[in-house]
Design a protein around this nucleic acid. Structure first.
Lengths: 189, 189
DNA sequence: GTCTATAGATCGATAGAC
DNA sequence: GTCTATCGATCTATAGAC
C-alpha cells in the first residue's frame, strides 16, 4: 500500500543474505546489520517485526528464489545431461565465489537444530537433491543410484567450501566441484 | 605444582570440545560453559585467562591429539590400503556419531576467518590431507592424484555431515563416507 | 581452585517523535 | 519509513573473599 516502496526490500535482502552467509546466524548482530545497511535498529524492526529470526527466514526465502533460478532451473532444460550438470556447477562456483565464502545454508544450519529455520532448510536441501536426482534419472540412471549421486555431489559442494576455507586454498573447491561433476555425469550405473 | 590436580583438565577439555562442536564458537557463551561444567565463571577464567579464545585454542589442541590418535595413526599402519582407509573412516564415523553432530573443525572455522584460530585450523586440515595422500602414494598412487583424492575425501566427510544434518537424514553421511571410501581405494590412476 | 558479586559493554527489542 | 533514546537481559571479563 505504501506507494513509495515498490521493492526497496530487494537490496536490503541482498545485504542480509551476505551478512548471514559470511558471519553465520549467531555471528551476526542487529548492530552489524544496522551498520552494514545504514538503517537504524527501529527501521530494521519495522521491516522485520520478528527480529533476527524473521530476518533469517526472509533470507531463507530469498535463497530459495535465487537457488531455484540459478541452480535448479538449468537442471530442467532439455540439454544433454553433462550440459545441465555443468550449468549448475558453473552457477554454484559463481554463487560461492569459487570457494571464497561459506554457503548460506550451512551458515544458517549451525544455529537451527530444531529451530523454526530447520524445516525450511531441510526442504531446500531436499529440493536441491531431488532436482539433481531427477536430472539423472531422466538421463537413464536408476532412481536409487541417482539419489546417492545427488547426495554425494551436494556433500562435495558443501564440503569443498569448508575444506577450501579451512586450507585457505580455493583450488580445493575447484577439485571438489570437478569430483562432483565426475560423479554426476559418469555412465549410468 | 598443585598436587590436587594431576589432570582434571582432561574432563574439562572434553566438555569444552563437545560444546564448541555442537554450538559453534559464536553460539557458545561462558554462561553455557559454566552451566555445562558446573564451574563458576571465575574458575573458567582461572584455567583459561584468555577467555573464550583461549578455550577454543585448547579445544583445537585437544582435537589435534585425538585426531592424530584416531584418524591419522591408522593410516600409518602396515596394513593394505583398503584396511587403512577403512580404519580411518570407521573412526570418523564413530567420532561424528554417524552424522549426528557437526565437526569441531567446521564449527570453529565459522568464526575464525583471519583469527588466531585460523592458522591452527589450516594446519590440522593440511596434516589430515597430507596423511591421507601419503597413505595413497605408498600404495602406488601418483602424488598429485593422491592429493586430489585426499581433498575429495575430506570434502565428502565434511559435506556429508552438513547434508545429513540439513536433510535430517543420517544415511546421507553414510553415503558420503561410502563415496569417500570408493574414491580412496579405487585402483591407482 | 572455587566461589559471590559485579563492572562495563553489547545484545535483542521497544517507545515515541518526526 | 526512519530517526533518537533507551530498556532489560545477557555477554565477556574482573575483583576479592575463602
Amino acid at each position: 500500500m505504501t506507494p513509495s516502496s515498490p521493492e526497496p526490500k530487494a537490496a536490503l535482502l541482498g545485504q542480509l543474505y551476505e551478512l548471514f552467509r559470511r558471519k553465520g546466524y549467531d555471528g551476526v548482530s542487529i548492530g552489524d546489520i544496522s551498520a552494514e545497511t545504514g538503517l537504524g535498529r527501529s527501521s530494521l524492526y519495522h521491516h522485520f517485526p520478528g527480529g533476527k529470526a524473521e530476518m533469517a527466514q526472509a533470507v531463507l526465502a530469498f535463497t530459495r528464489t535465487t537457488m531455484e533460478a540459478n541452480f535448479l532451473a538449468p537442471l530442467s532444460s532439455d540439454a544433454p545431461l553433462p550440459a545441465r550438470i555443468g550449468a549448475m556447477l558453473v552457477a554454484v562456483d559463481r554463487a560461492y565465489q569459487s570457494g571464497e565464502g561459506p554457503c548460506v545454508l550451512a551458515a544458517l544450519l549451525s544455529a537451527s537444530d530444531d529451530g523454526p529455520l530447520s524445516a525450511g532448510l531441510a526442504q531446500l536441501f531436499q529440493d536441491w537433491a531431488a532436482a539433481i536426482a531427477a536430472s539423472l534419472t531422466q538421463a537413464g540412471v536408476d532412481a536409487a543410484e541417482a539419489r546417492r549421486r545427488a547426495i554425494t555431489a551436494l556433500a562435495l559442494i558443501q564440503g569443498g567450501l569448508i575444506i577450501a576455507r579451512g586450507l585457505k586454498d580455493r583450488s580445493a573447491f575447484a577439485a571438489a566441484l570437478a569430483a562432483a561433476n565426475a560423479t554426476l555425469v559418469r555412465a549410468a550405473a
